[in-house]
C-alpha cells in the first residue's frame, strides 16, 4: 500500500484545540506541508499570536515564539534581524493583524521585512466569543453588532491585501480560500510561494486565507463553508494583489 495522504511531519501529532469544522486546522496543515516540502522545519521559527491560534505552539514542530496581541510582525522582525538566515513566519487572525496589529503589519511590509505572514480572515473574534472584527462584513451579526454591522456606526471592513499591495516593500499579497479542495490547492501554492520568497530573500510576503468560524457564526461546518463562498469571497475577492520581488530581484530573461 502506498501512502497517498498523511499528516505532515511539521504538524505535531496532537489534537488541536479548534472547534469542529474550523478551517484553522486546514491552514495549519498547509503550512506544515510546505515546511516539509521545503525541508525548513529545523530552521524555522513560528510566531503564534493572541486569538484562537494562540495554542499554535503546540501544533507546529518548529521552534515557536509567542507575541503579544498584534505584535507578531515586530517579534518576527526581531528574530529575523537577529538570525537573517532563519525562516520566520507569523500566523495571525484578523483581529490580531488588521485591528490591534495594523501598525506592525503595515510597517513590516513597508520595511520589506523578509518574513512570511499567514493571515487568517474569518470576519470575527473567535477566541473571545464572537465580537466584531476589522473584517466583519456589513450586516454581519456578531456579539458586539447584534443588529448587524452598520457602516454608519461601525465603519467598513479592512481589505488587507488591497491595502498592502500599495506598499513598496510588499513582495507578495495574495488572498486564497480553503472552502474547496481546488481552493486548498491554490492556498498551498500561495503559502509555498510566500516561504520561497523568504528563502530567496525577496521581501515581505503575506497570504490572506479566508476561513470559517462555524461556532461563532452559528452555522454547521458545511453551511459555514457555503457562507464563505456566498458572502466572503464577493467582498474579499480571491487573487494575487501584488507579486513582485522587493529585494534580490531575478534578472528578467529576454
Amino acid at each position: 500500500m502506498a501512502v497517498v495522504f498523511d499528516k505532515p511531519h511539521a504538524l505535531c501529532d496532537v489534537a488541536t484545540t479548534y472547534c469542529p469544522g474550523c478551517t484553522h486546522g486546514i491552514i495549519h496543515r498547509l503550512v506544515a506541508e510546505v515546511m516539509d516540502e521545503l525541508g525548513i522545519e529545523g530552521n524555522t521559527i513560528g510566531i503564534f499570536p493572541v486569538g484562537c491560534s494562540v495554542m499554535a505552539y503546540k501544533f507546529f514542530e518548529c521552534d515557536m515564539v509567542g507575541a503579544p496581541h498584534g505584535r507578531a510582525p515586530a517579534v518576527a522582525t526581531g528574530i529575523k534581524r537577529a538570525l537573517p538566515d532563519s525562516v520566520v513566519f507569523t500566523y495571525q487572525g484578523d483581529g490580531d493583524l488588521a485591528a490591534i496589529g495594523t501598525c506592525e503589519t503595515v510597517h513590516a511590509a513597508a520595511r520589506g521585512e523578509n518574513i512570511t505572514v499567514i493571515f487568517v480572515n474569518n470576519t470575527i473574534y473567535g477566541m473571545t466569543g464572537g465580537q466584531m472584527a476589522p473584517t466583519t462584513l456589513p450586516g454581519q451579526v456578531t456579539q458586539t453588532t447584534p443588529y448587524g454591522r452598520e457602516p454608519e456606526i461601525q465603519g467598513y471592513p479592512v481589505k488587507v491585501c488591497e491595502m498592502l499591495a500599495t506598499i513598496d516593500g510588499t513582495a507578495l499579497a495574495q488572498r486564497v480560500s480553503v472552502d474547496t479542495p481546488a481552493h486548498i490547492r491554490e492556498a498551498k501554492k500561495a503559502i509555498k510561494k510566500a516561504f520561497e520568497n523568504q528563502i530567496n530573500k525577496k521581501g515581505f510576503s503575506l497570504v490572506e486565507v479566508l476561513s470559517t468560524c462555524p461556532t461563532n457564526w452559528g452555522l454547521t461546518p458545511v453551511d459555514a463553508l457555503q457562507r464563505l463562498r456566498d458572502e466572503m469571497i464577493p467582498y474579499f475577492p480571491l487573487g494575487v494583489y501584488k507579486d513582485e520581488a522587493v529585494w534580490n530581484k531575478e534578472e528578467k530573461a529576454d
Binding site: I47, A67, G78, I79, A82, S86
Partner: peptide, 10 residues
Amino acid sequence: NMVLGASSAG
C-alpha cells in the same frame, strides 16, 4: 516586541 523577538532568538 522586536527586542522580544531578538531575545527569543538568543
